[in-house]
Each structure stands twice: as C-alpha cells, then as structure tokens.
Design a binder for these strands. Structure first.
Length: 525
DNA sequence: ATAGGGTTAG
C-alpha cells in the first residue's frame, strides 16, 4: 500500500508562491495550467496542495481541475486522495466527462485496483480510443494479459499506435508471437503513419519470443532506430545467450547509433554472462570507464558482477562488488550464488551473514543461490539448516526449485534414500525438477534400482517436463542403454509433449541465417 | 489549458 502523500516536504517559499497566485487570480483558466505544471514537476505533491485550495473555492475550479489532480495522484501513488477526488467528481456532476473517466481508469490501474477500474469502465457510455487503450494496457500491466487481448478484440473504435503498443505488451507476457505477427502485418497493410514506439513494441515481442530473424529484419527496415530499438534487439540476443551478436551490435551502435543508456549496458552484459564470453564482457567493462555518468550502484553494477561470476572471473566480480556503496538484494543474491557456482560455498555463506548484518532480507531467489552453494560445496548440514530457517525465520515459502536444491544436496552426498524420503514427505507433490534431481543423483552414484523406480514414477507423472525426460533419455544413452534411451524419446513424442517440445525447441533455434539482411553502416543509412 | 503506450540486474 503506497503511503499517503505528505505536504510537509513543500517549502514555505513554494507554498507562499502558490498562495500568491491563488489570491491574485483565482480563475480556473489560470490555475489549471499551473496545476498541470506542478503535476509534472519534480514535486507533484505541490499540485495536490493547490488542488485543495482550488476545491475550497467553487469559482476557482472546473472539470479540467480533476484530470490534473488525478494525474498527480497516479504519479504519487496517492490512493486515498484519488478515491476522495473520485467521490467529489461524482458529487460535482462531472461523472460523465470522458476525460475524467479516463483519468480515473488510469488512476485505478496504476494502483492495481482492477475491480474499481473495471467498474469505472462499465459506467462509460461511449468509451473512446483512450478508454480502450487504458483498459488494455492496465489489464496487461496488472497481469491479466489474456483479458487485455479479449478487450482489444471486442473494442468498437479504431485502435491507434498506443492501443497496439498496449496489446503487444500483453502478447509479450503470453509469448503470443503469432498474434503479434498478425498485428505487424495489419500495420504494414493498413497504416501509413507508424510511430517508432510501435515498431519498438513489435521488435520487443519478437526479441522476447526468441524470433531474432524477424526482429533483425524489422530492425533494419524500420525508418529510424532510437536507443530503445538498439537496447531491445541486444536484449533479444541476450535472452538466447548470443554474446557475439550482442557485442557486435553494441559496437555497431557506438559507431552509428544513439548513445547507449543503462538498460543497453544491462542487456549487453547479460548477453556476455555465459561461458566463453569473458572477452566481450571485459570489452563492455572497459567501455564503462568512459561513462562515469552511469551510477555504479544498481542495475549496472549488479549486471557487471553477474557477468564476471558467470564468466568465472570471481576476483573481478568481488572487485566490482567492493566498489558498490549500497548493495541491494540483487547484489547480494548475485554474488552469493556466483561464489557458489564457482565452488566457493563457504565464502558464499559468509557473505550471507554479512548481508543480514547489512539489514537486507533474503528472498526466494537468495535461497536458491544459498542452497545450491551448499549443494556444490557439500555443506549438507548448513544447507538443511538454511532450508529449515527459510520459512520459519525469513518467511520465505519453499518452491519447487528449493526442494530440488535439497534433493540435489542429499544426492550429491550420496544419501539417496534420504533424498527419496524427503521427496515423499514434501507437503506438495514433487514435479519433474525435483524427481530429476534424484534421477541425476542415481545416475552419478550408479544406483540402477532406484533409477528404474524413479523412472517409472516419472513417466506416469503428468507434471514431468520435457527437460526431465531429456535428462532421463541422456542418462540411458550415457550408460549405453540405447533401447531404453529410445523408448524414453518415444514416450516424449507420444506423451502429449510434442507441442511443448516444438514450441520451446524450435523458436530458440539459430539466429543468423543466410537470408538475413547484413547490418552495416550503409544499411542503417 | 484536460486522458492512454516502449528497453533495465539475481
């Protein structure tokens, strides 16, 4: 729940200026623009101060006043004040003003109050394109992507660029690549005036869905490319782990494109966060020394730490970590899990204590790192203690990945019976990742009897993922049990997994192919 | 003078 705004932060000087304005000319056509200026200023709470003054005097406000005030409430997360304004709108007789209704819609969606937003929408007699866009984007941002698309389908006014951007962001959340491609086609056929933001939204959908051929073609054909376009396509390569392509594009951007911003750096470093990408990562690191305008604390510093630990350069990661003045939960989680991945489990646990000393509370992801640290380093007692304290002390509920870590921990230590007993004692049914961890342990320790038992259990389970079956198949193949390996492959094909395998394996396939447009300074015009 | 949209780390 966002805090109510305090007006104490307003200086006396500002207050007296506003009062002077108010006394000198208490007419809406003077005060409303002032209200608008204050709303988009560095101190939107001063807008609410002026609004309070205006509301006290009927001649000083009109219907415009409410839209400005609601915008200030959306900025400020001033939920209570916004509902108060809503009540006043209803009393004032302006309840059918579509500008005010749209402002209310936006206000409620910003506060993730989907129910109130929907109620407002239902009261609008003739929703216009802004009302519809507001609903589509609001539903999408609140996690109701399917409902957002459903609204878009039934809207009875012509959409514009903003509407399409909103529905594309819903498609992004659902990985609805084909729906997005249909929108792309519709735009190409029917629209002449397309904003760069709309091209960027299509680009983002393609990038997030791993459809890099489409993204790259669009990127080259777009009439212009801004920093969002470059950042988005680099992010697409990052998702697929293609660091060579990402770093090439980044260097191209430095030559012919706009100035990179923090998001660009985060994306390109994320692309370099894989084995063998240290040289690319260090190239970006060197570039950063020419950009003292980027604050190190926050995403840029964290992304550097992540890159170095993933590339195996722990000392460099610690060097960056030491330079950070304020470390957030992502810093701590990155460095602890990174140390764990590089075999420094004890060091990871020490930093966990330090994190607590700094007053940062661990979350679910922190514990995945810690538990895997214990697993990697054979620190089984510490791991079990952490798992037990996770919920009891830190209020973090165990998820499948945590259970899988514990099974992995037992498994690595050769305690296969304990691992299996742990799975059977779980309060929720284990999924493929948990059974897979046990299977892996059986394979490592050559326990064929348990392997067979787990296999039977797995194949009968509906929650088993393609990855687990692939692991099973590979495990058989590893023991040269080819018939068993093939049987599992057949089970994968027949067991309703075809679709799943198709969608997740095909789309992530190679990125660069022959028919792609070569990206050069010339083609960028 | 009034309303809606895009890239960011574990």
């Amino acid at each position: 729940m966002p805090p109510r705004p305090t007006f104490a932060a307003l200086s006396w000087r500002q207050i007296s200026q506003i009062r002077a304005h108010f006394i000198k000319s208490p007419q809406p056509h003077i005060l409303n623009p002032l209200l608008g200026t204050l709303t988009s200023s560095a101190a939107p709470h001063s807008a609410l101060h002026l609004y309070n003054l205006m509301i006290g005097l009927p001649a000083a406000h009109n219907h415009y006043t409410f839209t400005y005030a609601l915008k200030a409430c959306s900025f400020l997360q001033a939920r209570h004040k916004g509902t108060e304004i809503h009540a006043r709108v209803l009393k004032s007789g302006h309840w059918s003003d579509v500008f005010i209704q749209n402002s209310l819609l936006h206000f409620y969606f910003v506060h993730e109050d989907v129910v109130s937003a929907d109620k407002v929408f239902e009261t609008i007699d003739f929703p216009d394109v802004v009302s519809w866009t507001c609903v589509v984007s609001g539903l999408s941002r609140c996690g109701f992507e399917r409902e957002a698309i459903d609204k878009f389908v039934v809207m009875d006014v012509k959409p514009n660029c903003s509407t399409l951007i909103s529905v594309l962001s819903a498609c992004c959340g659902l990985r609805e690549l084909n729906y997005g491609r249909a929108i792309h086609g519709y735009v190409l056929r029917n629209w002449s005036e397309v904003t760069i933001n709309l091209w960027n939204a299509i680009l983002d959908l393609y990038a997030k869905c791993g459809f890099l051929v489409g993204a790259r073609n669009l990127f080259v054909k777009m009439p212009e490319r801004d920093v969002f376009s470059w950042t988005t396509i680099i992010g697409g390569y990052a998702i697929l782990g293609c660091h060579e392509e990402a770093i090439k594009l980044f260097q191209e951007m430095l030559r012919v494109g706009p100035e990179p911003n923090e998001a660009t750096i985060v994306n390109v470093l994320s692309a370099c966060s894989s084995n063998g990408a240290l040289a690319s990562g260090e190239w970006v690191y060197t570039y950063l020394s020419s950009r003292p305008d980027f604050p190190l604390d926050g995403p840029v510093g964290n992304a550097q730490i992540n890159m170095f630990v993933k590339c195996g350069d722990v000392d460099k990661a610690i060097h960056v970590y030491n330079k950070l003045e304020s470390k957030d939960i992502i810093t701590w989680s990155t460095i602890t899990s990174g140390l764990a991945m590089n075999g420094r489990g004890n060091h990871a646990l020490q930093l966990f204590s330090l994190m607590l000393v700094h007053g940062v509370s661990p979350d679910d992801i922190t514990f995945i790192g810690l538990l895997s640290a214990c697993s990697h380093s054979g620190l089984i007692n510490q791991g079990l203690m952490l798992f037990e304290a996770m919920d009891r002390v830190y209020g973090v509920k165990a998820q499948m990945q945590h259970y899988a870590c514990v099974v992995d921990m037992y498994g690595k230590a050769g305690l296969l019976e304990k691992a299996e007993a742990f799975i059977r004692a779980m309060p929720v049914e284990a999924d493929g990742s948990v059974w897979g961890a046990l299977l892996n342990a059986c394979k490592i320790h050559g326990n064929e009897i348990m392997f067979e038992r787990v296999r039977k259990r797995l194949v009968g389970s509906r929650s088993v993922s393609v990855g687990t079956l692939a692991l099973l198949s590979n495990a058989y193949a590893g023991c040269e049990r080819w018939e068993d390996a093939n049987r599992v492959r057949d089970e994968m094909r027949l067991g309703g997994l075809k679709k799943m395998a198709g969608s997740s394996w095909v789309e992530v396939s190679p990125v660069i192919n022959g028919d792609e447009v070569e990206l050069t300074s010339a083609s960028l015009g």
